[in-house]
Design a protein around this nucleic acid. Structure first.
Lengths: 327, 327
DNA sequence: AGTTAAAATGACAACGCTGTCAATAAGCTA
DNA sequence: TAGCTTATTGACAGCGTTGTCATTTTAACT
């Protein structure tokens, strides 16, 4: 009985022959260890939680599926935990979740992962967690964070537009509170600087990562018969870019002939517009898979280290029909 | 100890005074029963599964959140199980899931819930389940199914268009294999019949519930300078309606002046188009809440019956700017 | 008050695993 | 081959609940 447990958990000190015998029986009986019993008996838990407050359904599904696929492979259970970070009883909420099912750890996704109040709470409670964050990787948090280098991606998109001759490039930003917003803006600025193009704050519109705000943003940037002479608009995400696209269409502006528009994230949005959006592909499912792997590694401590975990991702430029050379 | 268990499980034979004492302690200590232990010891499980193969992220998130909100209230755990019904080892997949965590039951969502191979398997395995189905309620399945009356909703949308003077109404259908497709088509036909309007099969386009197929559908229906004289298009879902809207725009057709377009489902899609879509609001979160409640009732047997469960929902007409009188 | 039935509480095993530690088998040395 | 060390296996308790059944308390009667 205990030997079977050893085999299942890939513990050392099991003779090859014994291992084979057990595995044969496991396969024949289609044995599946009972998760409740494992969680109850063992010192480590086989349940991880995914916590999110991002309202973007596409994003959430991708994150779920990524974590889930790793969980399946490793025999872990996934508990999903949507929440709103404005929630006053968030602390009680977390504690309840943790008491209910002892968790191996949590995967925190942005923007909630940026909240230090949450990480402090988890540190206090001694709960493992991995954060998915927007930003450039730092050395200190290699074993706790997965970075999505929005800075670099925005730099690349902006460069793409600059090399196509665009100089007056509008930028529709997302929510100010999100780290991704400032990272993307910084990348945009850096690209301008590297191409000796002046930054103009009039080209910046403060949006809300929503379709509507994309519409408003484009209207504002292109107002007064486009007196700013904008020839390209960089959307802070695909949703806003889609909004900008729609607004442009209503104004009778031809895309990409008169105006290039780019998105960010490569969500289904970017393929449901016409023309399809040039964007930065963000592999959310892969990102979340690595987040899960990183969490498993932490949980299991030194043994079973997983060395192939990538902790920094840069969304890659996907050029489609919504952008082209300045005419 | 056992008395606490009785209080937690709302079992009878606990004196009011004892109940209060226990509850006070529970609140003070913020006691949360350990789910793993409950699942292991008890005869009934406190974990339910949500199984889905619908690729629509908005739909899935709504279903998850609805089930989750009930689970939270009732102290249940939710295991999400995305899958593809073409999966050859689906059976093994289900059995693995069931062995891993003993489940109180499953909520099955369409289109997978329409597959009798799955329900047969679950019947064999003696697993409780509740199906969310498209269609008109029947008497036999009152305690196993939640119906979404797409027939009636399509009837209402079609009637809305008919009463606005439209007679040549195109219909962009979804996947043929989905029950919702035929139900919606039947509703459309019934409305036509009741308004003494002839059904014309040329007005029907077979789409795929995707944005792209909506675009194609509108192009086909409005081809040859609209020789069919179509003045309204009924989208099989919002995504296709959004596609149709976009195609119309490209063709220079004014919405709703020259053409009325309606969607189905009232997903965020219907508000991200311009003009916003007239559609049938399908309260997926409420539907899934009731599905969860129905499942809990089944699980707990006779005691704790929940009498307010609605097992039939009719999406309700939401009139927005994409539809208007025939001109 | 004394008796009896019914209601409320408690004692204890069991759920299916894992951790600990003891027992055994295998491998090695002299 | 005895005598040792080390690798492998097994026995048993315990994780935090619930189900069963025994025990105690309360209520309802003579």
């Amino acid at each position: 009985m205990k030997t079977v447990s050893r085999v299942i958990n890939k513990e050392p000190s099991v003779r090859k022959k014994t291992y084979d015998i057990v595995m044969e029986a496991v396969n024949e009986l289609n044995y599946q260890p009972n998760l409740a019993a494992r969680n109850l008996a063992g010192t480590s838990s086989f349940t991880v939680g995914l916590v999110y407050d991002n309202p973007n359904a596409y994003y959430v599904i991708d994150m779920q599926n990524g974590v889930l696929s790793r969980c399946k492979d490793e025999g872990y259970e996934l508990v999903i935990h949507p929440c709103t970070y404005t929630d006053a009883n968030m602390e009680a909420d977390f504690i309840t979740m943790i008491k209910r099912s002892r968790l191996a750890g949590l995967v925190l996704t942005p923007p909630l992962s940026e909240q230090s109040s949450i990480t402090n709470l988890l540190d206090e409670l001694n709960i493992h967690y991995v954060r998915v964050l927007s930003g450039r990787p730092t050395d200190d948090d290699q074993d706790t964070c997965i970075y999505v280098n929005d800075y670099k991606a925005a730099y690349e998109i902006t460069t793409h537009l600059l090399t196509h001759g665009h100089e007056n490039i509008g930028f529709i930003c997302g929510d100010k509170e999100h780290k991704s917003t400032s990272e993307r803006l910084e990348g945009y600025k850096a690209a301008l600087a590297d191409h000796k193009t002046l930054f103009n704050s009039e080209f910046i519109y403060d949006g809300k990562y929503s379709f509507e705000s994309g519409v408003e943003g484009a209207k504002a940037l292109l107002a007064d018969d486009n007196k700013l002479a904008i020839t390209a608009i960089l959307g802070g995400n695909d949703e806003m870019a889609a909004g900008a696209l729609f607004a442009s269409r209503l104004m009778g502006i031809a895309i990409p002939e008169q105006l290039s528009i780019t998105g960010f994230e490569d969500s289904p949005f970017s393929r449901q517009t016409w023309p399809k959006l040039t964007t930065a592909h963000q592999a959310n499912d892969v990102i979340s898979q690595h987040a899960a792997r990183l969490l498993f590694t932490k949980t299991r401590g030194a043994r079973n280290q997983d060395k192939d975990i990538i902790t920094s991702f840069t969304p890659s430029l996907v050029i489609r029909e919504s952008s082209g050379p300045k005419q």
